[in-house]
Each structure stands twice: as C-alpha cells, then as structure tokens.
Write a protein that binds this DNA or RNA. Structure first.
Ligand SMILES: [Zn+2]
Ligand SMILES: [Zn+2]
Ligand SMILES: [Zn+2]
Ligand SMILES: [Zn+2]
Lengths: 161, 161
DNA sequence: CTAATGTCTCTAGTAACTATAGCTTCAAGA
DNA sequence: TCTTGAAGCTATAGTTACTAGAGACATTAG
C-alpha cells in the first residue's frame, strides 16, 4: 500500500471530510525506517512531540510527526548526535532566521567526521603493520602480542594512540 | 611507616622473599596512563586480576599487574573491544599454542576498522556536499535543512545511509 | 468469535567508562 | 605529635542511543 493510499484510507476510516492524515506507530515505523521502540524513545526524550491518542490509548500521529521523525532519522543516518539534532530541529522551526548556525553545526560535524577518519586511518596503519609482522609461529614469538604488550610503543608507527 | 616499609610489608604478607616491585593504584595509573577509576573498573569486570591489599585495605599491585594493564591499555588504544582483549589475554597466557587465533582477531579488527572508515568516508562526502550547497540565506531556503528533511534522499549521493 | 498481530507501560540491559558522595588512610610539615 | 592535604576506599548513578523483555490491553482478519 502506498503512502497516498494509506492517507486516503486513514481519512476514510476517520469519516472526516477534512484531509486529516494519521498514522499508527507501526505505520510511522514503516514509513521512516525507525523501529517502534525507537519512536517511543524519541518521544520520551522529547525529540518527537507527544502525539494524540485513540480511544484505546494508542498513539495517533499526524503528518508533522512523520516529517519530524523523517528529519530525525535522516540526521541520525548522517551521524548527527541527539544534541545536534535538537539544535537543528529548533533552528528549522524558525524559517526567517539566517541559516548560519545550521551550517556551523553541519560543518562542525563534518570536522568531527574527518577527525574520526584520520584516527581510524592511523589505527589501520598500526593494525596492518602488526598483522603483517606475524609470522604464524607460536604465541610466545607472536609479533602481535609483542606489539600489544610493549607499552613503550617500540613496534608502533607513532605512540600517539 | 614509610611507603617502602609498607611495600616490604605487603611483600612479606604475600609470602614473597624475592624483590617484587609493588605499586599503589596511583602509581599504576601513572605508569600506564589508565585513570584510577578505570583500573578499578577493569578489576570489577574481571579484566585485571584482584591485587593484594595493604594493612589499610589499599590495593597493592605487582609487576604482572603492570604488564597486564599495559597490554590492556595498548589494546584499547588500538581500538580492540573488551571482549577481544579478553581473548587476546587468554591466548597470550598460552605461549606454546600457535598464534593463528591471535592474528585472526587482529585481522578481524582491522576489517572492522576498514569498514568504519568507508562508512565515515561516505558520510563525509554527504556532509561536504550538504555544507557546500548552503548559500547562507534564511533557514527557509537552507539546503542543509532541505537535505535533512528529505527522507527520499533526493539530495543525497546514495540513500544507503 | 477467535487467533494473530499490534500496541501499551515499565524495567533493565548494552559498551566502556566517568562522576559524585562520603568515608578512611597515608605522608609529610610545624 | 598533631594536622592537613592528597590519595584511596565503596557504592551508586550518569553517559549515548538505543534494544530487549514481561505481561496486559487493543485491533483486525478470517
Ligand atoms: Zn603471530
Ligand atoms: Zn603503540
Ligand atoms: Zn544554509
Ligand atoms: Zn540521505
């Protein structure tokens, strides 16, 4: 079933003349790719506003929840932290403001990603060196163990790690 | 009573006639670069064996603790998980065995590091693209917000993330 | 109507520590 | 010897971003 069909369906079942799109938590989950417990968790920590409830106490979401959750999900996929997402959401709620802050958050995140990459690159170099040095003998003579045991970093490219 | 006397005392109480060097937790911390609470934590989770205690109930470490903690620390610096370190320690306690398993653990870790790098590289590409697209206008028109809000990944290099 | 699936709340667990509180012990100076 | 400050002790809780489970209620397909 497509989104549009679901929306129409929801409208019909609510017998509403107005175009009220609504979703259960499961539908929202399928639409956004967020797991159901994750959606409830986002509500709990205040990332996603509390939705209305049906007669049977089940959550009823609207279009704005879908958009917001999709935003959150996409941001998480790009590695933004909850704190950063909170700021991004707050800023995106003020369309008239200049977007400098938004760009700054994204840039800062990019810097951090670059930093993580360079750290991992040096780990990679160390690990390759270590794995390469292993001659496949006994543990006693293993260069991997040697390297790890040598706290003076005698076998390391750098002692920075 | 001086430190030296206490150490001798501890050595005696440990039944050792040999000149066993011993350390307080603070000394161990300085030697290895592990913070004091981290050392206690490693003991708690069973990575580091329980040391002896002085008359005043303070931990008294020996050379073997120093070596083992240094090993742990170096492994952590290279990104090995606690579970991996546990295996490495277990294996290194059997010097007669072949070292194939050790190398396999290191190789597996290397693979994982490579995987993380490639993931971060694609995040980096996305983020650069996004940051670049921002023209510095109002939030309303910000391409960063656009990109994040678009769950269809219309502005993304790939939708894989 | 019934069975299956979906949803509810609440609690606790994950990795790998870090921080805090309130206490005791130790080393060294006056 | 007294005292003061640093170091050490235990125990608990917080961090990030969820995930898993238990046990009860709601909804829906056949
Ligand atoms: Zn080897
Ligand atoms: Zn090293
Ligand atoms: Zn912008
Ligand atoms: Zn995308």
């Amino acid at each position: 079933m497509t989104v549009a069909q679901k929306i129409l369906d929801a409208e019909k079942t609510m017998g509403s003349g107005k175009s009220v799109e609504s979703f259960t938590i499961g539908q929202l989950s399928r639409e956004t790719g967020c797991k159901v417990p994750t959606i409830r968790y986002y509500e709990q920590i205040g990332l996603l506003p509390e939705p209305g409830r049906s007669a049977g106490n089940q959550r009823v979401y609207g279009q704005q929840h879908l958009s917001r959750l999709a935003f959150i999900r996409h941001s998480r996929e790009l590695g933004f932290s909850q704190a950063e997402i909170r700021q991004l959401l707050e800023l995106s709620d003020h369309p008239d403001q200049p977007c400098a802050e938004i760009n700054a958050i994204a840039q800062k995140h990019l810097d951090e990603v670059n930093h993580r990459i360079s750290r991992l690159e040096s780990l990679k170099a160390e690990l390759e060196r270590m794995v390469h040095a292993c001659q496949g003998g006994k543990v006693e003579d293993c260069r991997v163990i040697d390297t790890l045991a040598d706290h003076a970093h005698g076998n390391c490219l750098t002692a920075e790690h």
